[in-house]
């Protein structure tokens, strides 16, 4: 399995130009925008990169050869999970570092507990995206799955950037009393929410991984 993960790592390393560009954009945006943006942007790029390794594997019929490497069929799935979880988590930590630097440079006032909670909830969100996307990409072709990915990211960006205004318009139109829901959430102890998020995340990831292992065991190459 180590070989598979090294392979994925080398695939990403071969996209250096893409990575540099995105990090550059991240740096610029982090100084011009709300600093919470970094913590959603950087892990997002990392998720896309991790999922892109599947596209590269599928290209040129490469999957047939990969499955002849000394691994059991399910190992391919496990390696993908470990690799993507590790890389997204790592980039999430990097983005928090960048966020701290941005805050220090901008010398803005910060509601620390709110920032910590938002940051803490980011990781499970992206891990959940992985948990949903990985089985889809493995079962169907990465091209088809990509459409789903963009829809999901569109929604995430929308929520992160325009969450407040959407909430306000929803409340004023009377459809949903968002304030009440938010108030309800705020009544729940913040740390309980975070723990619950991580617990759900672990459960969903485990189920997802088992599904993916099954998919790979039944696939023909």
């Amino acid at each position: 399995m180590k070989g598979l993960m090294i392979k994925d790592f080398r695939i990403i390393m071969n996209q250096k130009r893409f990575i540099v560009l995105y990090l550059f954009i991240a740096l610029i945006l982090s100084f011009s925008m709300d600093h919470t943006f970094i913590v959603s942007y950087v892990p997002m790029v990392s998720t896309i990169l991790a999922l892109s390794t599947i596209s590269y594997d599928y290209n040129d019929n490469g999957l047939s050869f990969i499955m002849t490497l000394p691994n059991k069929p399910g190992d391919y799935a496990v390696a993908k999970y470990i690799f993507s979880m590790l890389s997204v988590t790592f980039m999430w930590l990097v983005s928090i570092l960048l966020q701290i630097i941005a805050i220090m440079i901008q010398k803005t006032d910060v509601a620390t507990s709110e920032v910590i909670m938002t940051d803490a909830l980011m990781l499970p969100m992206f891990l959940l995206i992985l948990a949903v996307m990985l089985p889809i990409e493995l079962k169907y072709s990465p091209e088809k799955a990509r459409v789903v990915l963009f829809i999901i990211f569109g929604l995430v960006m929308l929520i992160v950037l325009g969450g407040k205004s959407i909430a306000e318009s929803l409340s004023s139109s009377g459809i949903v009393n968002v304030e009440k829901i938010v108030a309800g959430f705020q009544n729940i102890n913040g740390s309980v929410l975070v723990i619950a998020a991580y617990a759900v995340c672990i459960i969903v990831l485990s189920i997802s991984m088992m599904i993916s292992i099954r998919i790979m065991q039944n696939k023909e190459f």
Partner: peptide, 27 residues
């Protein structure tokens, strides 16, 4: 088992160095 397939191989963006790293970690 050593395998060479006619229409399938390592990722096209790999160089020999990448191949070496993967083989080293696999075998």
């Amino acid at each position: 088992i050593g395998v060479a397939l006619s229409e399938s191989g390592f990722c096209m963006i790999f160089t020999i160095e990448d191949v070496i790293k993967v083989l080293k970690a696999s075998y």
